[in-house]
Design a protein around this nucleic acid. Structure first.
Length: 415
RNA sequence: GCGGUUGUGGUGAAGCGGUUAACACUCCGGAUUGUGGCUCCGGCACGCAUGGGUUCGAUCCCCAUCAAUCGCCCCA
């Protein structure tokens, strides 16, 4: 019996690497332009980091974490997201000492134990960005712009930016209170999920697919009526900056980011082509999180983007990027393997990409391989070439062929 | 975690309760001497996700498991 990869995990095979690399390269390139530096944190952390960082409540922590006890009897969790880890690293390594605004990005595996679907895996990959130390709404705008520009550079279409503010510790409780009060005598009219949400997070009721359209839900108190001056002003400034940048967005009072740590700005980028997993990227401000994790009060904002979802969307739109791979030569050996080896070594040392078929097959078969590999040249060696210490160099696109002295092959191939 | 659909070779797929499981592509080999991309010829599932059951007999029927997928939940 073969052993398969665990449910919800996927091999990224050689023929897909080109797409992954192209995407990762673009991410690094855009981040460099925006002044974000890469960071890599461990794939597992103390379970407590996520419990404190994300908060008890969201499914991500309650039901979806891969938690285990290690041999030293510690409770360890495979990271379900990276923000808490980045902040942990920021505090632990005192990155704040370098400058007030620390801008970081990451990419890597995240783990959530959920039922797999296309665009939703148990091990999946996120690219994300965190800007720590600055409360200025301009940073909110920069982060959103970075996400949008990145996707735009991939040529992705059918994107919608949804924007909301979820208030802060001053005004959110007021709003939540109002909502709870509002729904308290309407529980019977809500679906089962919403009755659950009523306890855990009444804001959720607003974007319920079952109840969302109901009149009394539509008429529920709006957060904008409860925002404190600071949050109201912040949100206004973020919008002004986005408008100035020519960004189109939808205000969505029902957009509730799933992780409890968000404050003020919350946003999500959706792509039409992804079915139920339409959220390709999401994020927001989390001004209380650093303090929650034991640092001094430090504002922060970030977002995460699902790389598999991006790949899926790009594939659907026929826009998968690739990285070029040039094969310079393919050595065809007619029973002259040691000479062929010498040749390959020489060429590779000169920095050329050279392949050969080791199956000792007919010349015809080897030529076929050479053509299939996409190599620019076939380098044919046999008894004659060995004796003359030459190489028969055939340009596979023009079919031109010449005999070249061993020492002059590199030069001939570079012409 | 809940509900639905699906599961045939490397790939896309046809198929029927009963002798050799179509077809296409890929791949491999060949069309005489050391030359590819075109053409032609030939080869490639002892097996129809796995494990049970029904049946004289199952890839086609039933059950379970596993997996994928769609929707929900949640989220990226």
């Amino acid at each position: 019996m073969l052993i398969n990869a665990p449910r919800g995990t996927k091999d990224i095979l050689p023929d897909q690497m080109s797409n992954w690399l192209a995407i990762e390269n673009k991410m690094r390139e855009v981040c460099a332009r925006y002044g974000y530096d890469e960071i890599r944190t461990p794939i597992f952390e103390h379970t407590e980091l996520f419990q404190r960082g994300i908060g008890e409540g969201p499914d991500v922590v309650d039901k979806e974490m891969n938690t285990f006890v290690d041999r030293g009897n510690r409770s360890i969790t495979l990271r379900p997201e990276n923000t808490a880890s980045v902040i942990r690293a920021y505090l632990q390594n005192k990155l704040y000492s370098a400058s007030t605004l620390v801008k970081l990005f990451y990419m890597g595996s995240m783990f959530r134990y959920d039922r797999p679907q296309a665009g939703r895996l148990r091990e999946f990959h996120q690219f994300g960005v965190e800007a720590l130390g600055e409360a200025n709404p301009a940073v909110d705008a920069e982060v959103i712009l970075l996400a949008l520009e990145l996707l735009r550079e991939f040529g992705l279409e059918g994107l919608t930016l949804k924007l909301n503010t979820v208030g802060c510790p001053k005004c959110r409780p007021v709003y939540r209170q109002k909502l709870t009060h509002y729904f308290s005598d309407k529980l019977d009219e809500l679906c089962g999920d919403c009755r659950r949400r009523y306890e855990k997070n009444p804001l959720r009721i607003l974007d319920c697919k079952v109840d969302g359209g109901k009149e009394f839900v539509e008429d529920a108190p709006k957060i904008e009526d409860c925002l404190c001056d600071e949050c109201r002003d912040h949100f206004k400034k973020v919008q002004a900056l986005l408008k100035a940048a020519g960004v189109e967005y939808e205000l969505d009072a029902r957009l509730v980011r799933g992780l409890d740590y968000y404050t003020k700005t919350a946003f999500e980028i959706r792509c039409d082509d992804l079915g139920a997993q339409a959220a390709i990227a999401g994020g927001g401000r989390y001004d209380g999180l650093v303090e929650e994790l034991g640092g001094i009060s430090t504002p922060g904002i970030g977002f995460a983007l699902g790389i598999e979802r991006l790949l899926l969307a790009l594939e659907k739109q026929g826009k998968l990027p690739t990285v070029e791979r040039v094969i310079d030569g393919f050595v065809v050996s007619m029973g002259a393997d040691s000479y062929a080896f010498e040749l390959m070594l020489m060429l590779r040392r000169a920095g050329l990409t050279v392949l050969m078929d080791f199956a000792q097959r007919s010349m015809k078969a080897q030529m076929k391989q050479a053509a299939k590999s996409g190599a620019r040249f076939a380098l044919i060696v046999g008894e004659n070439e060995v004796n003359e210490r030459t190489v028969t160099l055939k340009n596979l696109s023009t079919s031109e062929q010449q005999s070249v002295a061993f020492n002059e092959v590199v030069e001939a191939m570079r012409r």
